[in-house]
């Protein structure tokens, strides 16, 4: 299958630049989620934008329940894209689940990614009492979440969007996210959500060899602050930058702070 079509890839910015930024969106979003960030880097970087299979305008018939049963399939997609575009000097910016997708790609394909920027990412969402790990969700919460998704997906999308945006002063954010979630085929959304909420890549963190920036909002309902501290402590060459905004989408609610943090890191 044509990878450009499969992932609805767009290459923008400075095509002659030596450095590449690859932006990867999170669950329920698409490449447009970075629209307030991109202009700040267009002059100096080649920029790769794409949609994850199952979301956005990616090729729907490319969705394989087997390939995307875990996020490993998405990591293979990222490697496919970088290889197909022959991209060099790649900094991977992964929002939410795509942060861990970038981590896996960097480990499986050494040299392919030079830097990682993890925006509201988590190595595990489920608490783990055995290890004293707090991911933010317990089993009961996740069971309820999936029951709600399976019971009435569109009602769930509306409620979930309000929960994770956490900006009552900007209801349009939650409305836009709910609309984006509603556009995903429910069976795909449920499978992808399960792949995300039950992932556990804590063991991958100490193996990361590339410089890593962790960007964490002040109050993220999907990723508690303690998770970003956990990651910073375990990733060998990591820097953590808090962003003074609420919710799971700092690229929407505090783009200037995100840009500053990225520029400082790059």
């Amino acid at each position: 299958m044509d990878i450009i079509k499969r992932n609805n890839i767009h290459v923008v910015g400075n095509q002659d630049a030596l450095q590449t930024l690859m932006f990867a969106h999170g669950f329920g979003l698409d490449q447009h989620t970075f629209s307030k960030i991109i202009p700040a880097f267009e002059h100096d970087y080649k920029i790769i934008l794409f949609d994850n299979v199952g979301g956005g305008k990616a090729e729907l018939k490319a969705y394989s329940p087997k390939r995307y049963e875990t996020i490993s399939g998405y990591a293979t997609d990222v490697a496919d894209i970088i290889q197909a575009l022959e991209a060099k000097n790649v900094t991977f910016i992964g929002h939410s689940v795509s942060g861990m997708v970038g981590v896996l790609t960097s480990l499986l394909y050494p040299g392919m990614i030079e830097r990682l920027i993890l925006l509201g990412s988590s190595p595990r969402y489920l608490n783990d009492a055995k290890d004293g790990y707090i991911g933010g969700f317990d089993n009961q919460a996740l069971t309820s979440l999936f029951e709600a998704m399976e019971g009435n997906y569109h009602a769930w999308a509306s409620g979930f969007a309000k929960l994770v945006t956490r900006h009552e002063d900007k209801p349009e954010l939650a409305e836009a996210f709910a609309a984006a979630l509603s556009e995903i085929r429910p069976d795909i959304a449920i499978q992808v959500a399960k792949a995300i909420f039950y992932l556990d890549h804590r063991e991958a963190l100490p193996k990361i060899t590339v410089p890593t920036l962790i960007i964490q909002t002040a109050n993220d309902p999907a990723v508690p602050g303690i998770v970003s501290e956990y990651m910073e402590a375990r990733i060998p060459n990591a820097k953590r930058t808090p962003v003074q905004t609420h919710g799971h989408f700092p690229q929407h609610t505090a783009p200037e702070e995100v840009i500053d943090a990225m520029k400082s890191f790059l």
Binding site: M1, A62, S64, K66, R67, E69, T70, S72, G73, A75, T76, D80, L108, E203, A204
Partner: peptide
């Protein structure tokens, strides 16, 4: 080879390679 898009690692030693997806 699970389908046209998926070759998946199973029964791996070391175990961290399990579920890895290849083309």
């Amino acid at each position: 080879f699970e389908d046209e898009e998926t070759a998946k690692v199973k029964c791996a030693s070391p175990v961290h390679l399990n579920d890895l997806v290849l083309n």
